[in-house]
Nucleic acid binder design. Structure first.
Length: 417
RNA sequence: CGGGGUGUAGCGCAGCUGGUAGCGCGCAGCGUUCGGGACGCUGAGGUCGGAGGUUCAAGUCCUCUCACCCCGACCA
């Protein structure tokens, strides 16, 4: 991608009413556009990051047997009445509207009911189980108060996965597999060291649900963390009884703010009973399907990454989700520099290395400032000097020092010989 | 939903006791610059969030309203 063709631009000033660090940096660097409170558009660079995160999640979900689908945003009233969650008194984040004929519809803030109801078409025998489906969906939630930039929006992208199992044992096996897959996701996006499995309130069926909490001052949750065991307890279930049950010692726990980037629930057969999802088991008896629900807030995760990886100059993207791997900065318009930069752009592009090429006619200081703000992990500077020396100036975003490299050394650095 | 704050050019802001709407950044043109957000000159850009009212006169005063931000409550 050439910056001369990128329609977004960086700014020196940020809207004063945006206080969340993640949104300030993302707006300033041109990754997102704020449409209204809690509602953000994703621009070319932001979309790339989002898609990179989704690709990682997709890989991990497929690896444990998830099948990707995409449900609808418009949802039927009667479905939600079956689980008693249509009433605004019961669920306060509903957006609702009416069809022309007067039929009430809701805008999906979750898809459990909908997907589970749909699965009735496909699950009737133990032979049809297990089934695990997931989607990336834009959830619409009429939050009383949006805040923290893209970390708590009224419209946001979530990956939600639902598991349908024959038995508690089968369910538990998948539940554990999801836990491991989630940990791999957070590891791969760069938050592995600061993200912890956290015990939280479980709802009607189980005592606990499990959250994946990333330590962050911008988070809304308070957790008690045992760093050694890599386990935490959410404030909402932080009692002596629970600690004893989990064999956690109060003295070893650290109280920290954290952002919930994922959560997983077991529903047992309760929701299936409500929605009339039964299967016939081997012995001929009808049993409710055992249901699990697993979510990762994709856009929130992106916000948490920005909160975690930034310095006074801008964002510092982890390698795996950066909008590009290499930021090529060309200084000056001299023929030799243009030639060297254009050529490197072609070579890296051909080698499958994503690259953001700053080919704009601007002063060096502005280009460096933009490169730091945008936060791509590897920066290569090309100028008349490097062209004459036939070298490339390389600097990691995280480093203060640059080095002169040959093309071969550069390609090797990016894993291409 | 309770409390507090803010709406003036794309962004950041100034505009006192009412009297012809300004500055910086950004943008356009010309010139000088060119390795960490250069500089000079010229120029474009605003129904002052909206509606109503008071007044000879409203960005400024009054009423209502909308939006945004912060704190709290809420967040299966």
């Amino acid at each position: 991608m050439k910056m001369s063709e990128l329609f977004t631009k960086t700014t020196k000033t940020v809207p004063a009413d945006e206080t969340a660090k993640n949104a300030r940096l993302l707006i300033q660097a041109g990754f997102i556009h704020k449409e209204m409170a809690g509602v953000y558009a994703y621009l070319p660079l932001g979309l790339r990051v989002l898609e990179n995160i989704k690709a990682i999640v997709r890989e991990e979900m497929n690896a444990i047997g998830g099948q990707e689908i995409i449900m609808t945003s418009l949802q039927r009233q009667e479905l939600w009445e079956k689980t008693d969650r249509w009433d605004d008194e019961k669920v306060d984040v509903w957006f609702k509207s009416k069809l022309k004929n007067g039929t009430e519809v809701g805008f999906g803030w979750s898809h459990e009911e909908q997907i589970t109801n749909m699965m009735k078409n496909y699950i009737s025998s133990y032979r049809d189980l297990p089934a695990n489906v997931y989607q990336f969906q834009t959830k619409l939630r009429n939050e009383l108060r949006a805040k923290s930039g893209i970390m708590r929006g009224r419209e946001f992208v979530m990956k939600d996965l639902y598991s349908y199992s024959r038995s508690e044992e089968e369910h538990q096996k998948f539940y554990d597999a999801v836990t491991q897959a989630y940990l791999r996701v957070f590891e791969r996006v760069g938050l592995g060291d600061v993200t912890f499995v956290t015990f939280a309130s479980g709802g009607a069926f189980t005592q606990f649900s499990h959250e994946f909490q990333t330590v962050s001052d911008a988070g809304e949750d308070t957790i008690y963390l045992d760093r050694e065991r890599k386990l935490a307890v959410n404030d909402e279930v932080y009692t002596d009884d629970v600690l004893a049950q989990l064999k956690l010692e109060k003295s070893k726990l650290e109280k920290v703010q954290a952002a919930e980037v994922g959560n997983i629930f077991s529903f047992g057969g309760t929701k299936s009973e409500q929605l009339d999802l039964y299967f016939t088991d081997e012995d001929g008896t009808d049993k409710p399907v055992v249901l699990g629900s697993y979510g990762i807030g994709i856009t929130r995760l992106m916000g948490v990454v920005v909160e975690h990886f930034s310095d006074d100059k801008g964002i510092v993207w982890p390698e795996n989700i950066a909008p590009a791997r290499v930021h090529l900065v060309r200084l000056g318009e001299g023929a030799a520099a243009v030639k060297q930069a254009d050529e490197l752009y072609s070579v890296l592009t051909a080698a499958g290395i994503s690259i953001l090429y700053d080919n704009r006619n601007m002063r060096p200081g502005e280009k460096f400032a933009d490169a730091d703000l945008i936060g791509i992990p590897h920066r290569v500077v090309v100028s008349e000097k490097t062209a004459a020396a036939e070298t490339y100036e390389y600097k990691a975003r995280t480093s203060n020092d640059s080095q002169q490299l040959s093309k071969a050394q550069l390609l090797k650095l990016f894993g291409r010989e």
